[in-house]
Design a protein around this nucleic acid. Sequence first.
DNA 1: AACTAACTACGAAAGTCTTCGTATATGATC
DNA 2: GATCATATACGAAGACTTTCGTAGTTAGTT
Lengths: 124, 124
Amino acid sequence: MSIKPTESELEILRVLWEKSPGTVREVNDALNEKREVGYTTTLKLMQIMYNKGLLKRERAGKTHRYEPAMPKETTQNALLSRFVENAFGGSTSNLVMQALGNQRTSPEDIEAIRAYLDELENKQ
Amino acid sequence: MSIKPTESELEILRVLWEKSPGTVREVNDALNEKREVGYTTTLKLMQIMYNKGLLKRERAGKTHRYEPAMPKETTQNALLSRFVENAFGGSTSNLVMQALGNQRTSPEDIEAIRAYLDELENKQ
DNA sequence: AACTAACTACGAAAGTCTTCGTATATGATC
DNA sequence: GATCATATACGAAGACTTTCGTAGTTAGTT
């Protein structure tokens, strides 16, 4: 049982990570702030995600209210493992350094990461 | 013109990042150490990648010798940007911390990253 | 020059993803 | 209870990915 949302599915998950539960209408509106998507397209996708077990839902009157079936972190970690494997041959530290080097990182970010490294080291 | 190798294409790129140029035979042999793939499958994929501009090639006798059209880092960065966007809503530092927290990171890795952070900070 | 082994080219099938149109159901309003 | 706006369900088309079989090409060997 591997978690493997497609790119469009991830778009929807991102909306629901931000605010959930949410209706198809709400999700579709959120998506349409970035790009044009038909309502039934979003509906279909969310139905598929429900069947795959990526979303939970419950009826509320005539609509459904959806929410992610798993915590954000669980999904992100699953995606991350795959990605590290696929693109960086499994080397997490390579990925981290590339990420830090390429995307611009603010001094605050750097501090946060340092603190986190300290924590990590103490834990071991 | 966005760089967007598929997962199978990435598998091939990883082989050629390791050692290139390489023939279809060599790449296919390398792939078959992990999983079974038909020779013509690999061939077709590499032809497609050549047409897409992901690989360069030149004739050498009756075979072709292929190599990545772009430096590894360029491709990795392109993939990384997409991934940060898709899975982490654009937050690089979130990705980095998740990566460090979840995958096990050795003390040496941590040191390497610290050194890298120092460098980064001095550069700014 | 014919034969053989290994290569390339290419078409097509099977699977998945994304999209949307159409049909049907539901609940509120007159 | 008929009407209307809005929901869901579902099928199917079109694009892309992955896979491999078959046909044809090439260069070395007898």
